[in-house]
Design a protein around this nucleic acid. Sequence first.
DNA 1: TAGATTGTTAATCGATTAACAATC
DNA 2: TAGATTGTTAATCGATTAACAATC
Lengths: 235, 235
Amino acid sequence: MTARTSTETARDIPEATVARLPVYLRALTTLLDEGTTTCSSEDLAGAAGVNSAKLRKDLSYLGSYGTRGVGYDVEYLHFQIAREIGVTHDWPVVIVGIGNLGHALANFSGFRSRGFRVVALLDADPSRHEEQVAGIDVRPFADLGEIVREHGVAIGVIATPAAAAQDVTDAMVASGITSILNFAPAVLAVPPGVDVRKVDLSIELQILAYHEQRKAQGDPADPSEPAEAPEEATA
Amino acid sequence: MTARTSTETARDIPEATVARLPVYLRALTTLLDEGTTTCSSEDLAGAAGVNSAKLRKDLSYLGSYGTRGVGYDVEYLHFQIAREIGVTHDWPVVIVGIGNLGHALANFSGFRSRGFRVVALLDADPSRHEEQVAGIDVRPFADLGEIVREHGVAIGVIATPAAAAQDVTDAMVASGITSILNFAPAVLAVPPGVDVRKVDLSIELQILAYHEQRKAQGDPADPSEPAEAPEEATA
DNA sequence: TAGATTGTTAATCGATTAACAATC
DNA sequence: TAGATTGTTAATCGATTAACAATC
């Protein structure tokens, strides 16, 4: 039996909970900005748009960071969640594909404030290699391996057309990237150990369209469509 | 007891299945483009990045559109899923907020090909009202109600900063919009009957960061991280 | 102490998966 | 008929929720 490594985060957190931790983190940032020092699970759940039972259950996977009868210290809980997610330090990321979307991503200010730093923009088109976008040089796609090694990049963002996405993925994996955020409307094949998350505008709109169609179809006298739970606003 | 309305789509489809139907639709489009006329559940599941049991279960909620021993007619199944989602005709949408992201969205060609048509771009900044983006006039935010009425818009896209998102939401809801795709990093409050879906870059990256952190932490001798299931590539 | 609120339990609900009977 | 593949069943797994004992 060996000694435990220093940072103790060995608990197994359900995937659904992991996906909500960033939402809680953002809500806590908002509360901090408003000068709130303490909040109840009811307060935070409201700011995050979930019910308080779910929030407390989620937080219970991280540890006991609240005080019964009192609530949570906003700053302390913010730190604990940031630590759990792993955004107490910045992650270097590369963005491949500097079209309209790539531009928008490169200029996205939330990157920096939420634990990420764009270290390179890559594009296959040589005519773009003189450009700067958001103060960052656009570099040849062939430089990917070098850049990943130099900066210790683990996360890559794909903003190319669908046709190029698998090739970009293969190159990313070969270079040592093990997490990919894919904006291209394509299903990516990756080896075990590489995580892929996708963001797909058309899919989101089509899901809305499906429900919209149902709303229109239902009897006006029968408002039985289960609406999204009303949520508290932040920001 | 009244007569059923003509279009018979009353079955209750699980939300997880609804979210995958657009993925299947896209995979079928790819197969169609390749000239494939028939496919098995194994083929289609591969192209969509799911296992075949899940695919067949999902399709079973729509009806029996396959042939045992043979498979599915690609064109027929494509049409049935498109009909189920509600994208056999185009949905008019408005985009509010013409910053970097709004530009990218306005120029996104997948909109048209996947069942949506951008009928207006709105921005609060008067200096932008002379612009055209992607061939569409940028119009004052105050015109929202008029545009929604004129085109029968049910779906709105928010690409504003977080600080403006709730006001935009309220105006959208007041104008009659009942489905919102939100790109602003804010939790939106909406009345019952209004659907909101959110796309949040930071959240996606933070989820990747969480898993990335765990990969780095684990013993090199213990490759127990459950990787994403390898998926077949499309496009 | 009395009131408030957490952290946890247990019940319920929904999603996934493997297996296979039905049937082309 | 024999082989292939769907559509469905039933078991399992994971997520949500309400309730409340613990405790500040």
